[in-house]
């Protein structure tokens, strides 16, 4: 639990940080809240020669709404998401998710952007971002570009972010008012990664489901957007037969590892069970 030696950099602007990353190359890693990276360094599973700490860059902090899009800047902490009235009002699923990430002490330090960009399938926010169809804004030497969360994750710790790029913000279209939502997470204890978790956002018109989007956490190498499951639900009255079919479709795309949280078979079934329960709760919350 003793990290190797490294040089520490603390840029004050995005340009300076991008410049440093370009100059230092793949010997450098970005440090956000540190709750994933520092344990990895202590275990010597990560041994960067340079750490570029983003915490002094003011422009990476804050939450705002522009044209029906919520912009979450990357260094916003999970605690700040929980405390934000704007999030409570427009994106309550983010608040619900933040509340099941780790514990209060970690949420004071842990950042939204770190959780999204890290690429660990155990992180909770990526599946929620996929569910909400968020766009990730990456800033690199050639300027800014946007990548859809549904495309961003390639494998465990493997994303479309280039080494010299920084995730600067996430842009989330505001779901219609009256949408139903839920994030259901099965975990062994506070602070644990999900055995399986599901994010569900739906809209209802009368008894009919008019849109459904589902994300799954920690049941594959990447977060999973259960596209087909959503399509099965869309247009249905959320009857049992349709739900069963959608759950089966979601379970079919999972490929979890067997670990101390349980064998793969269990985790797949729990992904389905969490989706089922999230859907039930989302439906009870939906207005329209």
């Amino acid at each position: 639990m003793i990290p190797g030696s490294f040089d520490y950099h603390r840029p004050v602007s995005v340009d300076e940080a991008v410049g440093l990353m370009g100059k230092l190359g793949d010997d450098a890693l970005l440090l956000a809240g540190g709750h994933s990276l520092i344990p990895m360094m202590k275990l010597r599973m990560a041994s960067p020669e340079h750490l570029v700490d983003l915490s002094a860059i003011d422009s990476l902090k804050g939450i705002e709404e522009i044209d029906d899009t919520i912009i979450l800047r990357a260094m916003t902490t999970q605690h700040e998401l929980i405390a934000s009235d704007l999030i409570t009002d427009k994106l309550p699923i983010i608040q619900e998710t933040s509340l099941v990430i780790a514990d209060p002490q970690i949420r004071y330090k842990g950042t939204f952007g770190g959780n999204v960009a890290n690429g660990d399938p155990g992180n909770d926010m990526p599946a929620v971002m996929q569910c909400l169809d968020a766009k990730l804004e990456l800033t690199g030497p050639d300027g800014k570009r946007q990548v859809a969360a549904r495309d961003f994750y390639q494998g465990a710790y493997d994303t479309l972010r280039e080494d010299e790029e920084i995730l600067t913000s996430v842009h989330i279209p505001v779901p219609s008012s009256g949408h139903g939502y839920a994030y259901e997470k099965l975990k062994r204890k506070v602070g644990d990664y999900a055995t399986a978790a599901a994010a569900v956002v739906i809209t209802m018109s009368g008894d009919k489901c008019t849109s459904a989007s589902i994300g799954l956490t920690n049941v594959g190498d990447t977060p999973l957007w259960a596209k087909e499951a959503g399509e099965i639900l869309n247009g249905s009255s959320l009857d049992n037969a349709t739900i069963d079919k959608a759950v089966s479709a979601a379970e079919a795309i999972t490929d979890p590892a067997s670990d101390m949280r349980g064998p793969a078979e269990y985790r797949t079934k729990m992904a389905g069970m969490m989706m089922r329960r999230a859907l039930e709760r989302a439906q009870s919350r939906a207005k329209g």
């Binding site: 514990d103 062994r188 204890k189 506070v190 602070g191 990664y193 670990d259």
Partner: peptide, 24 residues
């Protein structure tokens, strides 16, 4: 404390070893 069939010790950290908190 669990071992796989090769004798590798599994989950020897508080990430995996169940030490309940006040919540559980």
């Amino acid at each position: 404390i669990r071992y796989d069939e090769m004798g590798n010790v599994m989950g020897a950290s508080f990430m995996d070893f169940f030490l309940p908190t006040a919540v559980e």
